[in-house]
């Protein structure tokens, strides 16, 4: 065990104890100026601990977790200590209690928004973008015509079609899925076309000299080369899909759904539940992103960005 690691772990233990004490104090009643001195000291200790721990490759992995927990702690202490009004910002502990108390409600919202609208919309939008890209790929003329337009459309505020889709497909999840399809289509299209253009002439000539057919070249050479781009689009789209479905729900929903919950509970100033819904959405977003990143790692293991850094 190196010195940096030992001091880093020492500081971490000190930090955890200090944070536990601070939480105990702040929930015990009103706090004095001395308490904020303690928090300042803890900030310094946290900085030292993070700095030492990130020097070691072994412990560098847990640093983000520690940092996240540290931010949560600061949030809790500041909100409780300064007695910030609940309407402005509830404490993490209050949000946690709300989550635990309204699991059924949150689950119903999650199913309505994520399972019914986001996932099918994401699959359809990405699938359609991929297929259209493959079709366009055979015609350089279409490629030249569609790529600039696709690039332009990806930069447009497509989210604005949400009210139109709600009018066309009604209030239920179909309209949200439609918004998701439109939002995810163009990033996938543009990225797949760019990815399919990644192979060099030498590689394609090699396939040609093997007398490989168009499909053989596609499956064996061009699709694998396009995978980093395709996964990039899949990951962008995972976030976009969630945003699209939630925003579309602001324009009309049945009385269930995460976007509906956020907009109505904001109106009633019931911020605990809003934050609980946001926490669920954030968790769903991060998990799907992480899952995609994991699959990407397995599929494109050959890519230079995954080589171990020296």
């Amino acid at each position: 065990m190196s010195r940096a690691l030992a001091t880093g772990l020492g500081f971490t233990v000190l930090l955890l104890l200090g944070c536990w004490w601070a939480l105990h104090l702040v929930h015990g009643g009103p706090v004095a100026a001395g308490f904020w001195l303690l928090v300042l000291v803890l900030v310094a200790v946290a900085w030292l601990a993070l700095d030492r721990l990130s020097a070691e490759p072994v412990t560098a992995r847990i640093v983000p977790v520690l940092f996240g927990a540290w931010l949560l702690f600061l949030w809790e202490v500041v909100v409780v200590g300064f007695d910030v009004p609940r309407v402005l910002l509830p404490a993490p502990s209050a949000i946690g209690r709300t989550i635990a108390n309204s699991l059924g409600l949150l689950r119903a919202d999650f199913v309505q928004t994520f399972v019914r609208a986001v996932v099918p919309g994401w699959v359809m939008g990405c699938g359609a973008g991929f297929v259209v890209a493959l079709l366009i790929d055979r015609s350089p003329f279409l490629q030249r015509g569609l790529l600039p337009i696709g690039n332009l459309v990806s930069a447009l505020p497509i989210i604005g079609v949400a009210p139109i889709m709600v009018m066309w497909f009604g209030f239920d999840w179909q309209s949200k899925a439609a918004v998701v399809v439109i939002m995810t289509f163009f990033p996938m299209l543009v990225n797949t076309i760019a990815g399919l253009a990644q192979t060099s002439a030498i590689e394609r000539d090699l396939m040609h000299s093997y007398a490989a057919s168009y499909w053989q070249t596609l499956v064996a050479l061009r699709l694998p080369a396009a995978m980093p781009f395709i996964f990039n689009a899949l990951k962008i789209n995972a976030t976009l899909a969630l945003i699209g479905a939630l925003v579309a729900e602001f324009f009309g929903t049945p009385i269930v759904g995460m976007g509906f919950r956020i907009s109505t509970e904001v109106g009633r100033m019931n911020l605990d539940l809003v934050w609980a819904t946001i926490a669920v959405a954030a968790l769903a977003g991060s998990l799907s992103y992480g899952l995609l990143a994991l699959i990407e790692r397995m599929v494109t293991f050959w890519h230079p960005s995954y080589r171990r850094r020296r």
């Binding site: 993070l50 990130s54 020097a55 940092f67 976030t239 945003i243 976007g259 977003g285 991060s286």
Partner: peptide, 29 residues
């Protein structure tokens, strides 16, 4: 260095949060 290891993952995670969906809440609050 400490910022890189601690902050960078959260910068990325922050974007998987559908912040746009809570935009109305931010405005109201």
């Amino acid at each position: 260095r400490a910022l890189e290891t601690s902050l960078m993952p959260w910068v990325i995670t922050s974007q998987t949060i559908p912040i746009l969906a809570i935009a109305p809440m931010v405005v109201v609050v």
